[in-house]
Design a protein around this nucleic acid. Structure first.
Ligand SMILES: [Mn+2]
Ligand SMILES: [Mn+2]
Ligand SMILES: [Zn+2]
Ligand SMILES: [Zn+2]
Lengths: 141, 141
DNA sequence: TCTTGACTTGGACTCTGTCCATCGTAGGAT
DNA sequence: ATCCTACGATGGACAGAGTCCAAGTCAAGA
């Protein structure tokens, strides 16, 4: 994590107490926190940090590729510091709990038992992301 | 689509003009409309239909398995009438456009060129859904 | 120490979706 | 054909997640 702070400093970030606290809260490898959860944890370390700053900082970390967004249908976006190790997600349809998984073989064939964490897996879904032809020629504003 | 209306009638649905219009708007095989888009189109056919009714009807159709929800990170949920033919999605990261795709081979290896619709595909993501152990023993309320 | 623009703040605002009390009507009963 | 009533529709209030902005603060280079 302190290497994260180093990388950020190297990119010209001003090191504010707010940014340090957000980075600290996100430390860990199996963390999938919502922005509000990050805020709640951050407030314990720095009582006056605002929601806007948490959102700003998370957004910046995402565009730097330091953390990943994980979206769970209809729920709040979650932020995943485990961005440097490719992995997929197993999501509870009821409570939204997320686990990291590393499927082997055909992903659509199902998740290896050793990767199921006791879940009853009912569905595998693949989403491809990219730019459509018109957005590729006229990139995002 | 009229077969959809038949199935619904068979399930004991009251056939209201609102439900007929929603079904009619959703007709098609490559449609991925948001609830508001469904509402806008429905209003053209039945000016006084309400947003609440559109949401209610979409929700009912989803739980009957007649349509699928497709969630696109941070954007409005989309509704897909092509629920009886398993397929995956290719999503534009910029404008949110969705195309149906039918990947062959290892999904994580990339999308076959014939399935790319001119997109610049940058990422493939697999999500497994199911119930975690505690939700499986104490199911959703 | 001074200066300045990058950062933070909090509150207003938007967007998506849900809830609810009330009203209307589809369709079975007569 | 008419009546009844439970199911469905309505619209406005509400809620959660996230964005925006004008004003104030402060990190860090000079
Ligand atoms: Mn993860
Ligand atoms: Mn589809
Ligand atoms: Zn669960
Ligand atoms: Zn696009």
């Amino acid at each position: 994590m302190s290497d994260l702070l180093e990388r950020l400093r190297g990119r010209g970030w001003r090191m504010t107490s707010q940014r340090r606290v957000v980075a600290q809260v996100l430390d860990g490898d199996h963390v999938h926190l919502t922005a509000d959860e990050v805020h709640t944890l951050a407030v314990r370390l720095l009582p006056e940090i605002s929601r806007a700053t948490v959102y700003n900082t998370l957004g910046e970390l995402v565009s730097l590729g330091e953390i990943m967004e994980v979206s769970a249908a209809g729920r709040a976006m979650r932020y995943d510091p485990n961005a440097h190790h490719p992995h997929q997600h197993l999501v509870c349809s009821d409570c939204g709990t997320i686990r990291d998984v590393h499927p082997t073989g055909d992903p659509l064939a199902g998740l290896p038992v050793a990767e199921r964490f006791g879940f009853t897996v009912s569905e595998a879904e693949v989403t491809y992301r990219g730019l459509c032809p018109s957005c590729a020629s006229a990139p995002q504003v």
